[in-house]
Write a protein that binds this DNA or RNA. Structure first.
Lengths: 141, 141
DNA sequence: TCTAAACTTGACCAATTTAGTCAGGTATGT
DNA sequence: ACATACCTGACTAAATTGGTCAAGTTTAGA
């Protein structure tokens, strides 16, 4: 199981952005340079973040992006949801009528995978952008 | 982030096997039928489980596979390790000399991803096959 | 008003990974 | 001997990933 780079980049970019958020809009170009992420790719990512109302855009010269919420209200869940990162441990959920594998009952380990999903999602739900900025400021010398 | 079907199948198969383990060797054919997993695929998976000494094989007629350890000593970690499932949240670990992204320092969210990996791996380390069998017996009516 | 900075959108693509299949074996209990 | 079951490696179609590329639109500032 691995995290997509899209999700990783989204979080990195938002942490970067959040550090300057109070001062002025941050351009993707700057984030691209500072974080070493392709500009074109960042554009795709921020388009999604905007649709999900995590950031606002300001067009034109001196424009850029700004957070649309308090960093404390932006959880990892929200970010991941925005860029379509999903925690998938089972294939068998959607076929609700039948059980898993086309059998009549739930597959033998179904509960386990549910538990695992909850375990991971809990982590995402409890972690906010605020936490990450604080952490980052702490580790800067 | 999703779990590979290989890992899921490995766990399903081992739980299935564990239920009959005391009585007689379980053939992959039976597991295949009961769990709806392709026989050829199961063979690949069990080859790895055997190399990692999680199961033993008994060849010939009436042969099959048997657990090689106490179910309590087989953790999810062991199973996943055997089938090459890895929890990867960062690309940046291997390049140890430089930091991430070819920068001099760790990427801004490095600690976060480490935390996440640990969070997930902890779950895997604490869950044994024994737990799953017990659970499964409980849910059988 | 002109221009450059910055956002916006959508098509496209190469490489990798996944989730297997297929085709041959070899060992052994009856 | 023969059927059952393990064993091994090559192969592959489809999906996903991790982007690039091209062609815009908007707006601040000179």
């Amino acid at each position: 199981m691995k995290l997509s780079s899209k999700s990783r980049y989204a979080v990195m970019a938002l942490v970067d952005l959040a550090r300057f958020d109070d001062i002025y809009p941050v351009s993707l170009r700057d984030i691209s340079l500072r974080q070493g992420i392709s500009l074109d790719y960042l554009e795709q990512i921020f388009s999604k973040l905007k649709k999900n109302e995590i950031v606002k855009s300001i067009r034109g010269t001196q424009g850029g992006y700004v957070l649309n919420k308090n960093p404390n209200d932006i959880k990892l869940t929200n970010i991941f949801h925005a860029v379509d990162e999903k925690v998938k441990t089972v294939q068998c959920k959607k076929e609700s009528k039948r059980g898993c594998n086309g059998k009549a009952t739930k597959c033998i380990t179904h509960n386990l995978w549910d538990e695992l999903e909850i375990h991971i999602n809990t982590f995402f739900e409890n972690k906010s952008l605020e936490d990450l900025i604080r952490n980052n400021k702490q580790t800067r010398v």
